[in-house]
Amino acid sequence: MIPLPYPGNDLVHGFWVGLGVVAGLVWYALEKRRLRLHDDRLWVLAGMAVAFGALGARLLTWPAALDPSRTSSLLEWWTLGNRSILAGLIGAWIGVWLGKRLTGYREDTGELFAPAVALAMMIGRVGCLLTENPGTPTGGGWGMVMTAEQAERLGGVPGVGLNPSFLYEIAFHAVALTLLLRWRGRLAPGALFRLYVAGYALFRFAVEFVRGNEEVWFGLTRPQWFLLAVSPLLIRSVLRALRAPAPIHPETRSRWASG
């Protein structure tokens, strides 16, 4: 069994998350250059995605607390509350939507963003793997292990093998990145990003059963309830994207496919 290397170490966590963000932005810049997309409004969209993603990761989890008696003030939630990748994705999505409205950019950007997001999440989750409560007990003699002191601090079960749930998530994003690169240019505009988000939603719902998060209602965690709540929108969005006809921008499409 492998001990948790840096329990609760914000510096290590911040380093890996930062590395993920930088890698995602570098990827975005290289893709933008490879596709010869010189429109500066794409940088506005990237900025809006990162800024609103960061704000959303913190602020959007505030009303998502299902137990009203435990909902704290916005100030308290900002300083001490949870951060959520799911809320961050929603925030980033809102940011890009708002950026498009403000700048008048009309073309689809999903295929530009999706691989960058997958790469950023894959790297960023290493920080979680090294510092956070790994997950529920595996029930066998394998997994990650925490001491009693670490378990009390981070929540979780001490002295037994725990599911490395963040490793599962890293593997998911690695596979997703491979598929995104293989399928780019072959689907309707926007379909790739929506499929990636839908796939992540499904994966995340499943992995929550071994993540070790608090079960709030009917044995489901907050992220699972959140995913259930947004699933109709997600399904509708994916179906609409898949039903879309020919690519809107054939010249761009051929460049996507050739890469």
Partner: peptide
């Protein structure tokens, strides 16, 4: 965005 994410707010 980067400052908020990296420094965890």
């Amino acid at each position: 965005g980067a400052a908020l994410i990296i420094l965890a707010g």
